[in-house]
Amino acid sequence: MPPLLQVILFLSPCVAGTRASHLLEGLRLLKTEFALRLYRSVAAGRNGTNFVISPTGVALSLEILQFGAQGNTGRQLTSALGYTVHDLRVRDCLYTAYATLRNSSHGTVMELACNLFVQEGTPLSPCFVEQISWWANSSFQPADLRDPNSTTIQANEGLSRQTTGENPGAPLRELVSTMSAQLVLVSTMTFQNTWQRGFSSMDSQPLPFTCVHGLVLQVPMMHQMAEVNYGVFRDAVEHEVGVLELPFLGNVASLFLVLPRDKNIDLGLIEPHLTARVINLWTSRLKRSRMDVFLP
């Protein structure tokens, strides 16, 4: 088995028109580059341990801050994202994409929300409030951030009930590390769907999985024999990698798996050469193949 499995989920909204399509393609590449930079930044301090991040959720928070940021802060946000919501074309494209998320189909649930907890008494520009009140299901909630013990963060009510059946909360003291905070942003993203071709529970069994540095573990593996989109490519320094696509029902989204072909090659040697254009090239050149698929 390969040494490690790395998964990234990309948002691909649909808009009409040639100009809009070019803009969408550019935004998709920028968002993918942002996801890769974010991943590398977080991974640098994890010392090889597993973690889960939502680049889309982080980007949403930064987009909301762009509505109120100016000067050096505004320039830093634009540099981090690679785009600005002050560009009306970008704003319209993203607004359409976020609105499309709420239109579930084929059993798909995909939602994005951001809650802003504002220190009571903090003056906010009416223009800022108006701009973000309709941005990707965002909302305001007054809070006493100087007394974190008195306030509990509640996730978007409809979103959390759909995913968990309840409305879990987290004390603000777990998120606020300074008593001078005036604004806390909490973004949530949920995605629920079923595989286009499901894995059989009867085919699951313990099998060896080779981790980094050659450590072999026995882990539960699910299996299916199926026709999938698959390709073998080489990165910038000639490492051979396999790319597999597992679509969800209705082809509304896909899970892409990227892994070294040589089990002795650490994924860390391949990650620095991953770019948005490389990923776009690989995923666009996959071919139908019938194969056994084993996943933890």
Score class of each variant (00 low, 15 high):
26 G>Y: 02
78 T>L: 08
142 P>N: 07
72 N>D: 10
119 Q>R: 02
217 L>P: 01
266 D>C: 11
166 E>M: 06
229 N>A: 14
83 Y>M: 06
83 Y>W: 13
250 G>A: 04
270 I>S: 03
35 A>D: 01
63 E>N: 07
81 L>K: 06
88 L>P: 04
40 R>K: 15
233 F>Y: 12
259 L>K: 05
113 A>W: 10
8 I>A: 11
3 P>A: 11
270 I>M: 03
263 K>R: 15
142 P>G: 08
154 Q>K: 13
289 S>V: 13
150 S>D: 08
215 L>G: 04
225 M>R: 09
72 N>L: 09
30 L>D: 12
106 H>D: 14
199 F>K: 01
96 T>V: 08
49 T>D: 14
116 L>N: 06
24 L>G: 13
186 V>F: 14
224 Q>R: 15
49 T>K: 15
10 F>K: 13
179 M>A: 08
71 G>M: 06
136 A>I: 05
96 T>Q: 14
255 L>H: 01
164 T>W: 12
203 D>N: 09
89 R>G: 00
126 P>M: 02
20 A>E: 14
109 V>G: 07
27 L>C: 03
211 C>A: 15
52 V>A: 14
263 K>S: 14
236 A>E: 14
228 V>S: 12
240 E>R: 14
255 L>T: 08
194 T>G: 08
240 E>G: 00
75 R>Y: 06
9 L>S: 09
136 A>Q: 03
219 V>S: 07
56 T>N: 08
253 A>Y: 02
237 V>K: 13
185 L>T: 04
232 V>M: 08
158 G>W: 06
84 T>L: 04
46 R>H: 11
203 D>Q: 09
196 Q>A: 14
170 A>Q: 07
266 D>M: 02
168 P>A: 02
266 D>H: 12
94 L>G: 00
77 L>G: 08
221 M>R: 04
10 F>D: 09
18 T>S: 12
234 R>G: 08
135 W>Y: 14
137 N>F: 11
243 V>C: 10
181 A>Q: 07
255 L>R: 00
293 V>P: 03
227 E>H: 02
176 V>F: 11
77 L>H: 03
129 V>R: 13
13 P>W: 12
46 R>D: 01
98 Y>Q: 07
52 V>K: 10
272 P>V: 01
194 T>K: 13
112 L>S: 15
93 C>W: 11
249 L>C: 13
126 P>Q: 07
104 S>G: 15
58 V>I: 09
60 L>W: 06
120 E>H: 02
172 L>T: 11
111 E>V: 13
53 I>K: 03
260 P>V: 00
282 W>L: 03
99 A>S: 15
139 S>E: 01
